[in-house]
Design a binder for these strands. Structure first.
Lengths: 342, 342
DNA sequence: TTGAAAGCGTTACCAG
DNA sequence: CTGGTAACGCTTTCAA
């Protein structure tokens, strides 16, 4: 149904090869024919079929991105900056979501493999390296983002999660918190890394984490706000009650604050709260939220550049790990104890 | 480099056709060969090349989505629900962003056309119908969402924007506002529709819009919060100052509230504010934001169903317009005048 | 039940 | 400068 090179060639009495060459700006075409072809192309509004082209060249100029959830601003931002980085070099990004479900992720990856992408970027919901071993076996370049798999030697771009946990917790300590709880994340590398950072900060300052002070959601990165609220409920029931909470991410922190305020307590007066991610609406919240900026757009951009380097080098480059250093952002949810406690 | 049917056929001493048939569950294959093929497929972890298949079948099972900005929760939600709807029938969604730039949008659409999508869904940043006439000429089924083009007869799924403007404005009137301003949106169908709804509500209640009470951003749907803040600044300078503001969308409303509070005024005490979109974090804001729920996920889902119907019907069905009715959601940013003014 | 041949829209290679 | 031929990986058709 759509126009093909054959149509144009027939109309003009030239060969398909000539048309093809014109379209790819080959040198060895006379100005006259070039113009004739180009004119006809415009008239018919012809666009070359990239699938057919890819079949013979072996390049699709398609890069896949798999993220758990596009509604999470973190992943939306990554998608945006990644897409922008790739577009500059003519690569197109196709986005799939795994809804934080390892099975669905596998399924989506399979679909993408069928499209013969040039590369794959994944924020994986899976803790099982088998999918990635498959990808590796297929010789498809890929980059893990946000979440790494310890067993696996891969390209990786992400935050320094231990630093996130450490920065956040030490900040709580510095504003005078004595009993610091952690609403932790899932059992993946960011969840574990941030927990470790939390523990390191406590250890450095000779504080201990009381029993029950680390609480973990059943669901993973979906309905974060709800789980933050629920887990905070449990923390409030403890004795002694925490006076500071580091939450795995901002949505959880928002949920936690909600619970605290509902219980008639104040933030940061009774309990200081800090999250991570520095979402774009953190400043506009009921209690503006202190957070750790993960420089999300840089994650996407660096992942893009790394992907491009894999795509452009003809040798199989060694795997690279790129860690983005996080930064503390202080807002009202932790602005207190400097005064009240010293 | 990757495995092909030829490899499998050679390994097994059967023909490529046989392999192809097994993979598509054809009946006329003996159980024995079927099993042999399937086993080898699994061993080699083979995935059929969809591009090659598409070349001969003419179906790519790819649907394109073009949105202005994935960071805007509205479009992220649409993408999510659309993707889910299409996935059920085996269609894959590929997402592009236009960054609210008509030129970039054209460019992205061209790329997508080159991929020979089965259908296209677009929230267009363009006011120029020519791109869509092109798509129509190519015979590619497409669905406009969120923004329609008045000159163009197309499939369309979106909100009832006049109803949005009317609901919001009438609500402000009902809580006692007398001088209602509108921070309006861009010159596209939602912007114009909501403005009209605002005017209709004023007219119905015999109120007039004072000079300067409708203010419009230079930028369109990017940095909405900033433009909301700026425009509110202008409104505050007016005499008399408005006591109610309907903002085109929630980010603008958030920016407007920011400005009002910074000026030492209160919301809703001095000025009541309402937006549209009912973003997922509206409840957690400094002043929880009254809004108009556009039932975003339904927009995505209905767009998905409409797209599927275009894809599955062999005749060229008539264009359909699906309008989703909005709903008022009242929160603190407009909860006042019932008491204070009566 | 199987497979040979033709073809999908394009590009690579090489001869003229 | 131009174009014929083969090939990319797959499906369709039809004959065996």
């Amino acid at each position: 149904m759509p126009t093909t090179m054959k149509d144009i060639a027939r109309d003009l009495g030239v060969s398909v090869v000539t048309v093809s060459k014109v379209l790819r700006n080959h040198e060895d075409i006379s100005e006259a024919t070039r113009k004739r072809v180009l004119d006809r192309v415009k008239e018919l509004d012809y666009t070359p079929n990239l699938a057919a082209r890819g079949l013979v060249t072996g390049k699709t100029y398609l890069v896949g991105l798999v993220v758990p959830d596009l509604l999470h601003p973190f992943f939306a931002q990554v998608a945006k900056s990644l897409s922008r980085a790739l577009l500059k070099k003519g690569y197109c990004l196709t986005i799939s979501t795994s809804e934080e479900d390892a099975e669905l992720e596998k399924h989506e990856i399979n679909r993408l493999l069928g499209r013969r992408l040039d590369a794959l970027v994944i924020a994986s919901s899976s803790t099982n390296p088998s999918v990635f071993e498959r990808i590796q076996r297929q010789g498809l370049p890929f980059v893990l983002i946000d979440r790494s798999l310890p067993e696996l030697d891969t390209n990786y771009v992400g935050s320094d999660d231990e630093a996130i946990g450490f920065l956040a917790t030490e900040h709580l300590i510095e504003v005078g918190c004595k009993r610091i709880a952690h609403v932790r994340g899932p059992n993946n590398s960011p969840g574990v890394g941030r927990l470790k950072g939390y523990q390191n900060a406590l250890a450095k300052h000779k504080l201990k984490s009381l029993s029950g002070y680390v609480s973990m959601p059943r669901l993973v990165d979906v309905q974060s706000r709800e789980s933050g609220a629920d887990l905070m409920h449990q923390l409030l029931a403890l004795n002694p009650r925490p006076d500071g909470v580091f939450c795995y991410n901002d949505p959880m922190a928002i949920g936690a604050i909600h619970t605290i305020l509902d219980a008639g307590l104040t933030v940061p007066g009774d309990i200081a709260v800090i999250g991570s991610g520095n979402l774009h609406y953190d400043t506009e919240l009921r209690i503006p939220l202190s957070s750790i900026d993960q420089r999300t757009d840089m994650i996407g951009e660096r992942a893009g550049r790394l992907t491009l380097s894999l795509l452009e080098s003809k040798t199989h480059p060694r795997n690279r790990t790129i860690i983005i250093q996080p930064q503390l952002v202080v807002r009202a949810s932790t602005e207190r104890k400097q005064r009240s406690n010293r």
